Amino acid sequence: MAINELTLRRASELRSVVDDYVDASTRALTARWAQAWQEVAQEWQDTIAVILARKAAGEPLTPAQITQLARTQRALAMTATRLQELASEIGPLLEGSVREVVERTADLTTGVAVSQMPPVDSKLLPSFTRVDQAALEQIIERSLGQIHASSLPLADDAIDALKSSLIRAVPSGWGPAAAASEMLKRTRSSFNGGLTRAMRLARTEMLDAHRAANTAQNAANPSVTAVIWHAELSSRTCPSCLGKHGTEYPPDTPGPFDHQNGRCTFIPKTKSWADLGFPDIEEPPDITLSVDDWMQSNPQDAVAALGPDRYRMLQDGQITLPDLTKRVDNPDWRPSYQATSLADLRKVAKNL
């Protein structure tokens, strides 16, 4: 029952393992996108040169005419094909990492719970069962299905962004070389917008697969009586996560449902040593750091994380920690807890 230093260390090690897989996947996606851009960059350089040359010749090209130029259409078609290929590669690229994240989570979560057991002969302690493999396979398939579905729009969205960037006016007075460089920069930025979304998708889905495996493993063991929402307390922690840190839920609760790219985890909490059959062994206190204690010890980090207005309202008792977070339902993804707006917090403070 006592979350101790070993518990927190093992929970941190588990999260580090997951982060390593996520980071490796985002690096792989970045490399694929960079290679793809190199394959289409010359086509866009030539297309931009044609557009600027016709403008220099006095042709009043409208945005519609720019996109309808044969040269533009060829560049867009080539880029669309490459982006569609990239989108189709995301699922296969991430499949191995998703599987490893789920399998490793199931294995390492047990160690987090075992760290809370009393110091007695292991034969006297309850056994911890690994969650059924079929349940893990369902988590993997669900995650890969979501990755596939979310990857499909990436190409079309990036092409729309490319068209918009291409027809934006170049500032007057720019020379041909500077104008061409600026237009190519905008084009590349639009192309890489697909990469930004792909990396967010990879990170979000892999973390959600990790959380689902964590939940399944905790629910499979009756010695786990609850899970504790745990946030990494720092100047970068979002207000919503601070509001949820330390809250307790039944062990089969899915989540934690923090925001996209969130780093929160559920730490399993086991039965007390007395309930495990060891009433004569004194159980140490829980060492989980509360948000209140963290704020008192790290006021500068707290202000950076919360912002000065939220921090002041908390210090003055105008709002409470639970006020910092609200549930947002998303039919295309999952529910998530996000930071309550300052405007809404001021309403809460006014009504006290």
Rank of each mutant, 00 (worst) to 15 (best):
L6Q: 15
L8G: 00
R15P: 10
R15H: 15
Y21Q: 08
Y21G: 03
V22Y: 00
A24F: 08
S25N: 02
S25P: 07
A28D: 13
R32I: 15
W33D: 00
W33M: 01
A41M: 06
A41K: 10
A41C: 06
I48E: 02
I48P: 01
I51Y: 01
L52Q: 10
K55Q: 12
E59F: 03
I66W: 01
Q68L: 09
L69R: 02
L69I: 07
A70N: 10
R74S: 04
R74G: 03
R74K: 10
T81I: 11
R82N: 06
L86I: 05
G91A: 15
P92Q: 05
L94D: 08
S97R: 08
R104G: 02
A106Q: 02
D107T: 11
A113Q: 01
V114K: 09
M117F: 11
P118Q: 04
P119L: 03
P119D: 09
V120M: 04
P126D: 07
F128P: 01
T129I: 14
T129D: 08
V131S: 01
D132A: 11
Q133A: 14
A134F: 12
L136S: 00
H148F: 14
H148N: 12
L152V: 11
D157N: 12
D157G: 07
A158P: 05
K163D: 06
S164K: 13
S172M: 13
P176M: 10
P176W: 08
A177V: 14
A180N: 13
A180R: 14
E182N: 09
E182G: 04
M183N: 02
R186M: 02
R188E: 05
S190D: 04
S190G: 03
S190I: 06
F191T: 12
L195Q: 08
R200I: 09
L201S: 00
L201T: 03
A202I: 02
E205H: 05
M206V: 04
M206N: 01
A209H: 00
H210I: 15
R211V: 05
R211S: 04
Q217H: 10
S223W: 06
S223P: 07
A226G: 04
V227K: 03
I228T: 03
I228N: 01
H230D: 13
L233H: 02
T237Q: 11
T237H: 05
C238I: 02
S240N: 15
G243E: 00
K244G: 05
G246F: 01
D252M: 06
P254W: 04
G255C: 05
P256L: 05
F257E: 00
N261K: 14
T265D: 11
F266S: 08
I267K: 01
D275I: 12
L276E: 13
E282I: 12
P284I: 12
T288N: 03
T288A: 05
W294A: 13
P299G: 00
Q300G: 11
Q300H: 05
Q300D: 09
D301E: 06
G307L: 00
P308M: 12
R310Y: 15
Y311N: 03
L314H: 02
L314P: 04
D316R: 14
D316Y: 14
L324C: 00
R327V: 14
R327N: 08
D332L: 10
P335A: 01
S336D: 09
Q338R: 13
Q338K: 14
T340K: 00
L345C: 11
K347H: 12
V348E: 02
N351R: 14
N351M: 14
